[in-house]
Design a protein around this nucleic acid. Sequence first.
DNA 1: TGCTAACCGAGACGGTACGTCCCGTCTTGCG
DNA 2: CGCAAGACGGGACGTACCGTCTCGGTTAGCA
Lengths: 209, 209, 209, 209
Amino acid sequence: MLSHGDPSTARPGRPRDTGADAAILEATRESLVDLGWSKLTMGDVAARAGVAKTTLYRRWAGKNELVVDAVAVLFDELELPDLGSLAADVQGVVLQFAALLERPETSTALMAVVAESTRDEALRARIRDSIVDRQKHLVLMGRRRALERGELPPEPDLRAAARTVDLIFDVIAGAVVHRTLVSAEPVDEEWALRFTRLLLQGLGAAAGD
Amino acid sequence: MLSHGDPSTARPGRPRDTGADAAILEATRESLVDLGWSKLTMGDVAARAGVAKTTLYRRWAGKNELVVDAVAVLFDELELPDLGSLAADVQGVVLQFAALLERPETSTALMAVVAESTRDEALRARIRDSIVDRQKHLVLMGRRRALERGELPPEPDLRAAARTVDLIFDVIAGAVVHRTLVSAEPVDEEWALRFTRLLLQGLGAAAGD
Amino acid sequence: MLSHGDPSTARPGRPRDTGADAAILEATRESLVDLGWSKLTMGDVAARAGVAKTTLYRRWAGKNELVVDAVAVLFDELELPDLGSLAADVQGVVLQFAALLERPETSTALMAVVAESTRDEALRARIRDSIVDRQKHLVLMGRRRALERGELPPEPDLRAAARTVDLIFDVIAGAVVHRTLVSAEPVDEEWALRFTRLLLQGLGAAAGD
Amino acid sequence: MLSHGDPSTARPGRPRDTGADAAILEATRESLVDLGWSKLTMGDVAARAGVAKTTLYRRWAGKNELVVDAVAVLFDELELPDLGSLAADVQGVVLQFAALLERPETSTALMAVVAESTRDEALRARIRDSIVDRQKHLVLMGRRRALERGELPPEPDLRAAARTVDLIFDVIAGAVVHRTLVSAEPVDEEWALRFTRLLLQGLGAAAGD
DNA sequence: TGCTAACCGAGACGGTACGTCCCGTCTTGCG
DNA sequence: CGCAAGACGGGACGTACCGTCTCGGTTAGCA
């Protein structure tokens, strides 16, 4: 996740201040909330973290990489508690994801780095590793549970199954992001319910109620 | 759409160069392709357009506004030819929208201004007027056609109908955007077909084939 | 002397602030006195002059060029009043030159730019034009007066005469600089007298008293 | 000469690498030739010497002190072989000194440290001890020889004699330095001859030929 | 033989200044 | 009044060195 190597491998020279990473990422999120993506500056982050600007550049290549890492940890809190049914699980993850996107440090940063990543392959990879894969994992887990519960028919063709997972992932994440950031409407219980019904019926699953 | 007043109203002094707007917007798109959002500068756009920087600032408040206008015209080309069935219409619009997003000037700019808009109400309104409403209009038109064809049941509750349209819009636009920009996978015929099937089945409509 | 062209030639665009040059050079001398050559920074000069750093760089290529110009004007005050005899004239110019070198802004700056000029032909030329030639002019004038007074024999060979002028110039300027900056001893009336006697006797001229 | 104590005094702990001093000074001269005074950095010198930066700072207080020491040893090669007459001795030392100044590591460094010394008493003392006194010693020796040869009249007043030595020293060293670094003209045999003639005639000595 | 103290290399650290780029504004003269 | 040109004050950039520090590891003399 971070830009430097395994700290257990003793390298010559003074070791890096291990506490600094956390302080910098925290400062980055703070600055993101106060100033927004475009006004955030490396100098401001450094000052908030009580660290020299050079220390930032020693560890991250630039603003984009720093912000991805700073925001990524927020996605760690996404969980998928077993709510008893596929419908409840979907609705739960939708609300959770929406709650995350409504935090100002997330929304302002996420779209910006995605925009930047359209011209930067390395950044795209970083986003995929730090953020997207973490979300997709939830979809996989939900699917496995639903299969165990018998809510979804077993799909023998593995490649077709993977394509379905990708589709569902883009539909869920895309819809929530679009609702939140583009339409700028709240993702409340009611919307989550209607969306879940649409999705599960679309999948040919028992939508429940 | 643009930030300045009605040019038909005769004002004292030298009138604005009417051709400049188009040249500037074209230069903006060009610069967007070459440099990407974050490297694009007002000075560069002015130079490409053969225009002074002051002329830009006389007509647009800043980079965000200029880029929204420059990109907005691309959305004019979105159309909804009657392909005979709701399924075909949906698939058509999905492919059309994806084709638009795959153009470099669109993808790089769209996410960036959305990101910026999370902290700027006026910008959000501008995006809604210039871009979002244009897309949503297609959904409304498609729905009207489907109702006429009898592919969808008439929905007497107007407010519920509006909510459904909003939901469908976020699902379609969100899924395509997410697939294209975040997952960075192509929206090809096959994906469009699978997505359409999911959506229409979710709506309880005849999915066709 | 300065780095920009003839201001009488009207160029397009906003003209440069004519007062800024003087303010910057004054600020440079001030900073030189307070901080010395090596601690002087472009940012500090800009701040003292109430000017942006970019304005400095628009007019001078760097610290060296700026300081040469700032110090050069001090050499304008060197004069050669006719004191009645060659001896008195020499003594006068020696004292005047020493007084100039004892000012902190001169001494600290002069050696530094000379040091820098050993690796920079353009800087050497700038020093020659701004400073050295101004001093050499005094030697030439003193010589002409002495010839008119009959204190020096006419020298028909022009090239030999030029060599002699160069020699005298290096002896006078070198001795005063060395005494002041390297030996760090004062150039007082007595030293000037002893030096003058040495020089004039060396030239085979009537040393006077 | 160097900044650290007498190495004969046994101190506890690992002794300093005795070879490092020489390697560092050599690296300093090398860097001086390649980069010039202002571009020379402690880090670069350390790298060239194959030594850590801390080792430099353990032995010298900074760039100025290091460079003075590095250049000082070059002045050790100044000698005053007995050429048989005062005139020949003077001419010899002038040419020798000029040859030294024409080496790039000398010229670029000497003026720079002199400039720096105008604001640093300790540095001035270091220059006097390491460099100036070494040169002045030559003047004293030449004078003693000339007195022995009867080329100069014995001067009974000791204080006046000291003043004369100082004067001659500033004239010789100053003229050569000025000719070389400021006028940037070569000190060749002819110039040395003309200068010697001027000086000796000025001193009332038999100029010889 | 082991202890201790100063050495060494490497390199991270908090800083300062650099020189550049772009911002958005202003001041010109011309049309 | 629009316009091209370009200077202006300002702010952030990313880099280069500064001089200090903190590591692990070496190299002596003394116990």
